[in-house]
Amino acid sequence: MSENNPALEVRNLSIQFGGLKAVDDLSMTIEKGALYGLIGPNGAGKTTVFNMLTGVYKPTSGSVLLEGENITGRSPTEINKAGIARTFQNIRLFKAMSVLDNVKAGLHNETHYTAIEGALRLPRYFREEKRVTEKAKELLGVFGLEKELDTKAQNLPYGKQRKLEIARALATDPKVLLLDEPAAGMNPNETAELMDTIRFVREKFDVTVLLIEHDMRLVSGICERVTVLNFGQELAQGETSAVLNDPKVITAYLGE
């Protein structure tokens, strides 16, 4: 692995469900530290791309390289360990667990003691729990959730649930963070705040961000480059402002 490898490289990625080619021959290169957007009309295959990147679906052909390492076809757990974390379009929190425990579950592979050490309360349990709890609290502080540590995740208001999901993803210490429609259901104020958060997260945690979004203000506001998908195929790719003004893209979104 050389230092110059891009954070994430997608090569000719395709997936077929029966007769339907949901994603067809998609390639993109995301440089380290980039804020990259993946946009397109409903049903274009954006979330399917995320599911392939995170191992939920196995691509029919093509490959995914994380910092030069081929991770195609690995299980979701292995891909997370390799360094990709994600959030979901329809929020998937650990609903019945507290806010703090959600993040501590995210720190699972950061917590170094065995099940037996835990069940018998050996010294390493206390040391590690203390360290991990501090880390989780610090992370929650970044997202302004430090006052709600004991709240059940399902009782949080919607905006905070989205933030908690990002915090949980960051807890796994990823190289690449995938955000699936982070601004869905947010009002303009919340969206503006979210944009600041995403920028801040990229600096503070030194991650590369790939996001799916419909809110064009957010995309044009923070994404440096974008790829536009339409019917599973790449429609355009490049600098955000150039792509968003491309007549092809405007037609795809608004129709003829």
Partner: peptide
């Protein structure tokens, strides 16, 4: 609570 999310955090 969530099978898929549990996998996604490793």
């Amino acid at each position: 609570d969530n099978y898929i999310a549990a996998q996604s955090v490793g």
